[in-house]
């Protein structure tokens, strides 16, 4: 009863505690509603063979990563060596989703560029980038207009999805994968999913 004057202090501290916890959260990381849902259906042209198409069902029975990238994406450069070394370990196939290669660049005047033009230039740019920086991908597909990206809820490149044998998205990483992310989060999850199958 005597300590009643402490009530506002306690309330303040509780409130400050909530705010302090809030500060540790990253507002840029919006949790995906697609976790544990089936991979959105898509059918896109392959970067290495544009006349053939690739869809998520082609990966059925395998644990795989879908990595959203583009040559104009600066953060992708940062994560690229991590992907290259992961690919070398040969633990999981990585499929690249090349996201809006040309129109996402921002520095290119897209007026009067036909879809054929855009596709051809996208392929050229993407291939050159992979030749320069190394290609960690089992294959890459071209999402010219970013429509498939929307189906995946992509809002910033790079993003990486971990997909299980049954074709369900089990984990989403937003932003560049650091070596720590890979060792501490991704690899254990991959191992777990591979064992589960």
């Amino acid at each position: 009863m005597k300590a009643k004057f402490l009530v506002p202090l306690v309330l303040f501290l509780a409130f400050a505690g909530f705010l302090a916890f809030g500060l540790t959260l990253n507002p840029r990381e919006v949790p995906s509603p697609l976790i544990d849902k089936p991979v959105p259906a898509f059918s896109l042209a392959r970067l290495d063979a544009p006349e053939t198409r690739f869809g998520a069902e082609d990966m059925r029975g395998q644990v795989w990563l879908l990595n959203v990238w583009a040559s104009w994406c600066v953060a992708c450069r940062q994560e690229h060596p991590v992907l290259v070394s992961l690919a070398r370990q040969d633990v999981v196939p990585i499929v690249g989703l090349n996201y809006k290669e040309l129109r996402g660049d921002g520095g290119i005047d897209m007026r009067g560029v036909s879809l054929e033009d855009e596709t051809a230039r996208s392929i050229q740019r993407a291939r050159r980038w992979l030749a320069d920086h190394g290609d960690p991908y089992a294959l890459s597909v071209l999402d010219i207009d970013g429509r498939v990206g929307i189906d995946f809820g992509v809002y910033g490149v790079p993003e990486t999805f971990l997909i299980d044998r049954d074709g369900r998205i089990r984990y989403k990483h937003i932003g560049p994968i650091t070596p720590e992310n890979l060792q501490q989060v991704l690899l254990p999850k991959i191992e777990e999913l591979k064992r589960a199958g």
């Binding site: 919006v30 697609l34 929307i150 809820g153 809002y155």
Partner: peptide
Amino acid sequence: LVERYGDF
């Protein structure tokens, strides 16, 4: 949109 990006 909510299916893809969540309530956010």
